[in-house]
């Protein structure tokens, strides 16, 4: 096993324990036990349970954003870029269902600060979709909130699957998630066509 820092062990513990018990029932004692560190060590790194959980969320959000961004850049045409980015997102979440739960379900249960952090993290996805305004005919005339609607539609679809315990099957959702992302820009017929290509 690769030696991990105590901080990293605590972040991993937050992911595992919250996935198993839910945020509300998780205690600092659970986290120190799971990570194999002392209470003193915990408080050297984090003010409280919430701070540890938020740090775990930030780490997960950064990793996901990097993977989506990297995949997005592998393609040229906007619909292909979106397809690649979403495929990376769904595969990441399917590969790490506990991270998926933390990043999309449990984060909402951890109070106001966590909820603001969650919304801010989701906003990082909007530039990917905003490119559709230049790609689509008439795209400039769409509401300014269009990319935020797409983020809502995508997270709605994905969270449903995760909450139902089907995170492992998320990659099968790609056609629907892609349709949801393209349809405000291209309309149902063209979006369905773009989904069907390849």
């Amino acid at each position: 096993m690769v030696a991990r820092s105590q901080r990293e062990r605590l972040l991993d513990a937050a992911v595992d324990v919250v996935a198993a018990k839910g945020y509300g029932a998780t205690t600092v004692a659970d986290l120190t036990k799971e990570a194999g560190v002392s209470r003193t060590t915990f408080y050297e790194h984090f003010k409280d349970k919430e701070a540890c959980f938020l740090a775990a969320f930030d780490t997960a959000a950064d990793v996901l954003a990097r993977r989506i961004g990297a995949a997005f850049e592998t393609e040229e045409a906007w619909p292909d870029r979106v397809r690649a980015g979403l495929a990376a997102l769904l595969e990441s979440l399917a590969g790490e269902p506990q991270i998926a739960r933390l990043a999309l379900v449990d984060i909402g249960s951890a109070g106001p600060q966590a909820q603001r952090r969650y919304r801010a993290a989701l906003q990082r996805m909007t530039p990917f979709f905003d490119e559709g305004r230049d790609f689509a005919p008439g795209g400039r005339r769409l509401p300014a909130n269009t990319s935020r609607m797409v983020v809502g539609a995508v997270t709605g679809l994905v969270s449903d699957e995760i909450e139902a315990g089907r995170a492992d099957r998320l990659p099968e959702m790609l056609p629907e998630v892609l349709f949801a992302s393209l349809v405000p820009y291209l309309g149902p017929a063209a979006a369905a066509n773009a989904v069907g290509e390849r």
Binding site: R119, M149, G152, V154, P175, A180, V183
Partner: peptide, 24 residues
């Protein structure tokens, strides 16, 4: 019957995302 199966989930997801942001 050409629309995707989960089309209504997309619509409610988009709407509740916007509402959630305003409330938060």
């Amino acid at each position: 019957g050409e629309l995707p199966k989960h089309i209504s989930v997309m619509a409610t997801g988009a709407v509740s995302g916007l509402i959630f942001d305003e409330l938060v």
